Computed example of a mutant assay.
Amino acid sequence: MKLSKGEKVANGTIYTSLTILAFLTLYPFWNTLVISFNDGLNTTLGGITFWPRKFTIENYKAVLNDAMFIKALIVTIGRTVIGTFMAMFFTSIYAYGLSKKYLKGKKIYMIFSVITMYFSGGLIPIYLLIRSLGMINSYAALVVPSLVGVYNMIILRTFFMGIPEEIEESAKLDGCNHIRTFFSIILPISGPAMATISLFTAVYFWNEWFTAGIYINDAAKLPIQNYLMNVMNSSNYAEQMAKLTGGIGKFTISTVTSRSLQAATIMVATLPIVMVYPFVQKYFVKGVLVGSVKG
């Protein structure tokens, strides 16, 4: 189809704006990656933009030789896997129950749920609650307070409400109860929605740091984002790492600096969760579009 002059100008403006926006979004990530592969002392001279000027992997060696970083990474992986599984279990069950028209008190449950999206009990009462449950300085504190997300529940509830009632009626005729129907029929056909919410939940558990900062006192139990925050706040991080890893035997301060180590730590902390996206992308797109077109 031949485009008019006005349409060409409009398309050119749109493509140019999107290109600039993509560059502004991706460049900080790319520049951090470049700095992480550049010699630390050389980086202090400035001028590192798109490519490393003096390539090295010493920054990553220093990070991976830090026992505290490895512990933080293991804690974060465990928290993300276990937390996502448990959160999806409780959130999906809650959403499935509220999707039923015949549920008594359904509106009251929804009102109470939505209220929590806008108001909370406050930091001190929540801390006292977590302490009374004996979860201070425990791994449970990293997962249990975030098991049910109301926003995710509403998305799943809307999806479940769109499933034809005839499917469940057929299951009941075959002798299935609500639990059997949910796990054997509803969940298998809800793959796109479950994958989308699982991705949201996994990213939340991977990136969330405030909970650990409040409830965890043992440095060995801190997740990777809290470790990264400590790195970013440390002005003499390179010197501390040199002492912990043996100095010249592993790396020297002339090779790495606090900034180069911070860049390498950021990349190692970010790439694992970014690499998940390609594997769930097709489900993510379907999940976002589910319910957008109705017959």
Rank of each mutant, 00 (worst) to 15 (best):
M1S: 11
K5D: 12
E7G: 10
K8G: 11
Y15Q: 09
Y15D: 06
I20C: 06
I20A: 09
L21Y: 13
L21C: 13
A22C: 14
F23L: 12
P28H: 14
F29Y: 13
T32F: 03
L33N: 05
I35C: 03
F37Y: 05
F37N: 00
L41H: 10
N42T: 14
N42L: 13
N42S: 15
T43N: 06
I48V: 14
T49F: 15
T49I: 15
W51R: 15
P52V: 06
P52I: 06
F55C: 07
E58R: 12
E58N: 13
A62H: 01
V63H: 00
L64S: 05
A67D: 15
K71R: 15
I74S: 12
V75E: 01
G78I: 03
G78R: 01
V81T: 12
V81P: 06
G83H: 01
T84V: 05
T84R: 00
F85T: 15
A87F: 03
M88H: 05
M88Y: 04
T91H: 00
S92N: 02
S92G: 04
I93S: 01
S99F: 03
Y102N: 13
K106N: 11
I108Y: 11
S113M: 04
M117C: 08
Y118E: 12
S120P: 02
G122P: 02
I124K: 08
I124W: 08
L129Q: 13
S132V: 07
L133A: 12
G134S: 13
I136P: 01
I136A: 05
N137W: 12
L142M: 09
L142G: 00
L142R: 01
Y151W: 15
N152Y: 05
M153C: 04
L156D: 00
F159T: 00
F160C: 05
M161C: 10
M161N: 06
I163R: 02
S170W: 07
R180E: 14
I186S: 01
I186P: 00
L187E: 01
S190L: 08
G191M: 13
P192E: 12
M194W: 03
A195D: 02
I197G: 01
S198T: 13
L199V: 08
V203A: 03
F205K: 00
W209N: 09
T211E: 06
A212G: 09
Y215E: 02
I216Q: 00
I216T: 01
I216V: 07
D218S: 10
K221C: 08
P223M: 09
N226T: 11
N226V: 09
M229R: 14
V231G: 01
E239G: 10
Q240A: 14
A242D: 02
T245Y: 07
G246F: 09
G247Y: 11
I248Q: 14
F251G: 01
T252V: 12
I253V: 15
T255Y: 05
T255R: 04
T257R: 02
S258V: 07
L261Y: 03
T265Q: 04
A269N: 07
L271N: 10
P272N: 04
P278E: 14
V280M: 08
V280G: 02
K282V: 07
K282I: 08
V285K: 10
V285W: 10
L289A: 15
G291D: 07
G291P: 04
G291K: 06
S292T: 09
K294E: 09
